[in-house]
Each structure stands twice: as C-alpha cells, then as structure tokens.
Design a protein around this nucleic acid. Structure first.
Lengths: 353, 353
DNA sequence: CTTGACGCCCAAAACGTTTTGGGATAATAT
DNA sequence: ATATTATCCCAAAACGTTTTGGGCGTCAAG
C-alpha cells in the first residue's frame, strides 16, 4: 500500500536506480533530474522502506539499550535522564534508539541480546550497570559487536567507556560527613553483583579508614537501589542499639527512602542524622531538606556515550575511547552537620548571630 | 559474517525453506527434522536477520514512542515510569520499543514520524501529551497507521485510548484544599498548547466556582512542567501583594519546584501554604513534606497502552478501545491544612494534645 | 575519423528471510 | 494394479532497497 521507489520511478519514467541515487545525492545524476526526483518524492510522500534499506545496507542506523529492570515496577529518575540523553543524542545523529527491559542475568536478557546482536537489529549497544561477572561483555567481545559502557568493563582490552570515579568520591563523602560532625556512618548499598556497588562500598570502607572510624558490618545493608528498599533498610538500622548518625546511600533514590525513614523515626534529617546520596538527580535539589549527593552529569554522560558509540561505528576519525568522570560533591542541607551552625548555610537565610 | 539460514541449511543438507519452517514450528516438517534443525541452529548460534524478516513479513515487531522533549535537558520521573511500563509490556510480548525525542511541532518531529510511519520502521505508535491542535493525529488517521494515545484525541472517530479524568479530579483537588482551610488557591500550569493543561486548568476553574472562590488571573502561571520553572513561577506569585495560600500544579515535577520556592520564601509547606501536584510520581511520597497529588497509575497505564496497541495490530479478539482512569487523590502533608490540627495525621506520629 | 573521457542513466544482482505452489515418496483406499 | 491421500520436503518468487558494472551518447583531443 505505501509508496515505493518503484512508484516514484514509474511516474518519472526513470529507473529505480536513478531515483535511489538522486535521493542519496550521488553526483552521477544530473542536477535537473535530481530536482525532479526530489520534487516527485516529496509530492508523493515517499519514504524509503526501512527494512529494505537495512537489509541492503547491512546496518540499521539504530543503537540499543536494554534496561536492567530488576523488578516489575521500575522508576528511577536516573533512567529518565539517561534515556533522554541517549535519545537526544541519537536523534541528533539521525539514528534510532531501541530499548527493551529484561531482568539482569535472566534468560530473557540473553535472548534479547542475541536477537539484537546476531539478528543485526542494532548497530551497537550501550551497556550499563556492569556486573562483577558479566556475560554480556564476554559475549559482545566474542561476537565482535560494537558497544560502549558506562563503567569500565572488567576484562582486559581496549574498550570504549566512561568511568565514574566511585571509590574516591564516596571516600570523599565520608570525609565530608566527618567534617560536619557525624561520627557513626551507615551505608545502604545496592545488589552485591553490581560493580558500582562494589566500588562505592570500597570507597565507604576506605573513607572510614582514612577518617579513623571503625568499620561496623551492622551498619551496612544491601538494598536494590529503590526508595522503598532504602526506607526499609534504614528503618532496620535505625532500630539498632547503637544507631548511626549518618547514612551514605548507593544512589539518590535509596537516599529518598532513607530520609523518609529517618523522618518517621522522629529524627531531623540534617541536624540529627545526615543523609547523602549518589547521582545528582534533579529532584534531589528539591527534596526537603535538599539532598547532599555526588552529582554525575547523567544526561551528558548518556549523550557522550552515544557519541562515542557512533564514532566507533564510523570508520572515520577515532577520538578518545576512555573518559573518567569525577562526580561533584553537592553539599546540601541533608548533611548540614551536627556541630556548630552550618545548617542552612548558603541557602538564602542568614546564619543566626 | 554472521550465520545465515543458508549456513544452517547447508550443514543439514536441507533447503532453507525447511529450516525456516522448522524453526517457525510449521507442521509440515517432521518432528525429527525439526529437532535436528533446532539443535543445529542452537549450536551454530543462528538468529534470523531482523531486517530480512521484517522486509518479508511486512511488519517490524516494534512499536514506537517519540518523547516530546521540549528542552535539551529533560528529566521527569513520569517518563521513566512511562517508558519502563512501555518497555516491560513490549518485552513481554516480544516486540521492541523504538524511542526517539523531538521537540513538539518541530520539523524534526514531523520527519521522524514520517520515516517511522511511511518507512514502516514500526508497526504502531504511542502518542502522549496530545496538543489542542495536533498534526500527529490527523496525519496518522490519514495514513491509516495504528496508534493508541494517552488522552483522548480531539477529532471524532473510534480511537483507542486511555483517558484520564483531568477536569473532575483537579476540581476535586480544589475542594480538598478548601476543606483543609486554604482560601486563595493559585495554579501553576503547563504549556497552553497541551490538552492536559487545558483540561486541568478547566478543572481548576470549575473547582473554584463550585467552592465559591473568585477566579484571579494573577494567581495563574504557565510553566513548562519542570521543577525549575515551577520554582520560578511560584516565586513570582508569592511576591504578589496578595499571595496565595495554596498551589495546585499541573504535575508533580512542577510541584517540587513550587515547594522549594515556598520554603525559600520562609513559609511552611502545609501549615502555611498548601501545595498539590498531579501524577503520583514515586518520589512524591518521599519529599519533605510528602506531596499531596492526584495519583495516576502511570506504569500500568503505559503497559495497558502497549497491550491495547498490540491487540489492535492483531486481527484477533478486539477488546475494549477506550478507558477512563480516575486519578486517586493522595492526601499528604503538603496540604495538611490551615485549620485545626490535621497536620501529620496518619503519618505515624500522634497528634498533639 | 578515431579515441578517450565524461555525463548521465539503467538492468541486474544482492541483502536474508518467508511464503507460495507444488513435487516426490510412501501409505492407504478403491 | 491404480487412484487417492498424507507426509515431508523444496525451488523459486517476493519483500524494497542499494550497489555493481556497465551502456550509450556527446564532446574534446589526437
């Protein structure tokens, strides 16, 4: 039913070859014919069939991203920023973004990657939430399929990725909390299979050591990076005989839940219990109190990843392959401090005399 | 380079026809051969080329969604839930989700829809943030292309959509605020071209009238559904000679910004100034104070939309085409009320004696 | 006048499937 | 013994492009 190249050719008494080449801007078709073809195509509303084009060109002009959805209900502002970044950059380069969701390490995930990679549904994929042992990496390498990742892949090799300095920045966060007078710092992490969890937790431990704080396993809990889990885990920890006076969370989403728990326990987030997140999600600036966090430019990272992947696909100029991003510590009122009157500093109100 | 059906056929000394039909489960191939084919395909890691399959089958097993990204930086938890819902349901039905972003009513948007629709990149599309005059609807109808939408399309016709009762629910929100003792209610809306803006604003007006409040245009502002804009607009309104004592916002994201502004103006969100949102985004339950909002099950709506679209594509059973969803008013502390001591009711702490 | 180059165009092949319309063999019915 | 029917299988067409490898004039150079 739709208009094909053949229809356009017939109307102009040209071969489909010429129509194709005219539209693609080859120089072996006269300027006049090119105009005629353009005009006719426009008038007839001709748009090339994508499947046919992909088949012949052997590329799809699409890149893929599979959301590691651990649970049915999946809502994290991190992803909307991430996907918006991917989508914006992809759109700018005229490639499509194909996304799907699958639980990490599930059969479904495996099947998805295989159909996409071996079925050549997309030209490259974007990886994220790397696991400590991650079949995806091995598979993509073995298949020789282009990919970029947020977080450095573990195997040796010359990969293209953006790495976030998790360890040092979380350690710096511990330091920050210490300076604000917090003494007993808990850590609410994510699934232990995740690389970021391992790194951020390592940063927590390193920070404790450097600050001269003892490490207490009772103050550590593993969530799933959602606020409900953050809430639950924090409640548990707050009911310990010796509760903490601060929480470092693996991400902002967890931290929101933790703040809620602290509040519900009748404690003031900030003056009494510090809470810090990781991500720098936009809403973190508008929670009450605003959340101290390690801000990583998620949107820009996503755009950059797409750019790097597309550069990889283009046999042209090869820019840098690796980037390290150092998150910025945004000090806000959720860690305003237990000593002195740091609270509300820089928030528009004057310090009390 | 990748394994094709021809390779599998060659190895088994079969025709490609038989291999294809064996894998697709036709019954005109013997059980034994089917097994052999399955086995070989598995061993060789054969996955059919998607482009070839699409071309021949004349369908892509993909559905499309174009994010109406009004600004470069685009982060709204609404969308992560929405997209997660789309992705989950799509994945469950073994279809892919293709997404891209384009500013509403831009040339880019037009081009995108055309390549997708006429180029048959996807089998159907999902529409959202319907405009009061929306070329997309007209275009899709005229092209005879399957689509479903969140929000009812304006033209007459038997469309498939999910409608949210914006008008009545916002009116009910006004009523709620009145009951809580708020007297002067402002409204921070979205772009005037949007259907939801028109409807929610109409609800606001209807609610005022029913409550016996006067309508004051000075208390109405148009944002862009982001928290920074909510913040800015609210600040302006708060500086009026006769500032409001409550805000109704077109969405939660806006409300977060408004709460921030109220706080910064030295007023207490809840006891002094009520703030209400719309969407029921997860983080709304974890803001301080938690945000009163009209909760619509975004994730489920998204899943449902995909289900409806796929049903539409299948010439089989035709379930219902239209749904009306009534958002649930979640009363939280951001509208705890000016009269009496409603505050913190049901939040785990005892009312003061 | 011939040769080569150039400008413009095209027929046919190819991309890798699925689908169509039988064909061959064996089993069963007449 | 022949016709009919199942049971398996296959060659070829089709899907709609892009790419390959010329072909056919015309014009300038030899």
């Amino acid at each position: 039913m739709p208009i094909t190249i053949r229809d356009v050719a017939k109307r102009l008494n040209l071969s489909i070859t010429t129509v194709s080449r005219a539209l693609d801007g080859y120089d072996d078709v006269s300027e006049e014919t090119r105009q005629r073809v353009r005009q006719a195509a426009q008038e007839m509303g001709y748009f090339p069939n994508q499947a046919a084009r992909h088949l012949r060109r052997q590329r799809s002009d699409a890149i893929g991203y599979i959301l590691p959805a651990t649970q049915p209900r999946f809502a994290d502002p991190f992803f909307s920023e991430f996907i918006a970044g991917l989508g914006d950059e992809a759109a700018q380069h005229q490639v499509d973004l194909v996304i799907s969701t699958a639980p990490p390490d599930s059969d479904q995930e495996k099947w998805l990657y295989q159909t996409w990679v071996q079925g050549q549904k997309v030209d490259g994929v974007i990886l994220h939430r790397i696991r400590l042992v991650d079949w995806r990496i091995d598979y993509l390498i073995q298949a020789g399929f282009p990919f970029v990742s947020l977080e450095k892949p573990l195997p040796e090799g010359d990969f293209t990725y953006i790495e976030v300095d998790n360890r040092n920045s979380v350690a710096a966060m511990v330091q920050h909390l210490r300076e604000r007078g917090y003494q007993r710092i808990a850590y609410i992490g994510g699934p232990e299979t995740l690389k970021i969890q391992a790194e951020r937790f390592a940063g927590y431990q390193a920070g404790l050591e450097k600050a001269g704080f003892a490490y207490d396993p009772k103050l550590v809990a593993a969530g799933d990076m959602t606020s409900p889990e953050g809430y639950r885990q924090a409640l548990q920890i707050l009911h310990l005989p010796q509760p903490p006076d601060a929480f470092i969370c693996v991400n902002d989403e967890t931290a929101f839940g933790v703040m809620h728990a602290v509040d519900e326990a009748g404690l003031a987030v900030g003056p009494e219990v510090g809470v810090a997140g990781f991500d720098g999600v936009q809403t973190a600036g508008y929670s009450q109190p605003p959340l101290t966090t390690l801000d990583q430019p998620v949107y820009d990272i996503a755009r950059h990843l797409v750019g790097m992947l597309l550069a990889e696909l283009n046999p042209e100029s090869q820019p840098e392959h690796q980037f390290v991003i150092v998150p910025k510590l945004l000090e806000r009122q959720s860690t305003c401090g237990r000593v002195g009157d740091h609270c509300r500093h820089g928030a528009g109100t004057e310090p009390q005399p």
